[in-house]
Design a binder for these strands. Structure first.
Lengths: 107, 107
DNA sequence: GTCGTAGTTCGATGGCGACCGTACACGGCG
DNA sequence: CGCCGTGTACGGTCGCCATCGAACTACGAC
């Protein structure tokens, strides 16, 4: 009983639960910004291992959690791999131009 | 000689010295976000004392310094009062849509 | 000159968050 | 079954930053 899978149920905020503050705080870190840029570049989903970041796996998990909690990315579980994607639609709806402005920045 | 005025010469970054990271970090604080919103609302310049923020003067100085160093605001000295304004043009040029997206957020 | 007002600078403190290593839970494959 | 490979959870450390109070400078008015 209780299907012992205590893998976090992977909860994401609804649109109206997202705040610009949380999004800005999520984007205001070089590692997380790199993650967002990679997700934006490759239009498809990217597994955690497919992300190139200069931190260990546990730290990566930490960053992905923050991005997910802010509503910046969505995660989908498939077997043992977790696929991540940008929540472009929701971000553009709530904060039109914000994501594009960030991505437009020269590296 | 040396015109003893050691009031900080109020240096601002040029456009090509501004980074999206610094801007995001500057915006990712509730107090600073409130400052930016107030500057955006009142199209004119606002003195430090005219800003409504829930912190002491010294902390306000600290926040204005960060916003200025990131290139988000400009400061102009006039007597003992310091007038602040949003660098809309520069921000829109470098990160088109970013500022508008932030300001579009529901409070 | 003497206030009062506007804002900065300095030093100290407290809390949050980025980071790591280790241990653990799953799922797939032999 | 045992073993990898993927990723999470936990505990701990360390550094940065938001915050404050107090002392200070600068300007204007009286």
């Amino acid at each position: 009983m209780a299907a012992t899978t205590h893998l976090t149920p992977l909860v994401h905020p609804e649109r109206d639960e997202m705040t610009v503050e949380a999004v800005l705080r999520a984007l205001a870190d070089p590692v997380r910004l790199a993650i967002v840029r990679q997700l934006a570049r490759s239009e498809a989903e990217v597994s955690c291992g497919g992300l190139e970041v200069p931190v260990t796996k546990s730290t990566l998990t930490h960053h992905l959690g923050i991005l997910r909690a802010a509503g910046v990315i969505a995660g989908r579980q498939d077997g043992t791999t977790r696929f991540n994607s940008l929540r472009r639609n929701d971000l553009d709806e709530l904060f039109p131009g914000l994501l594009d402005g960030v991505l437009a920045a020269r590296r």
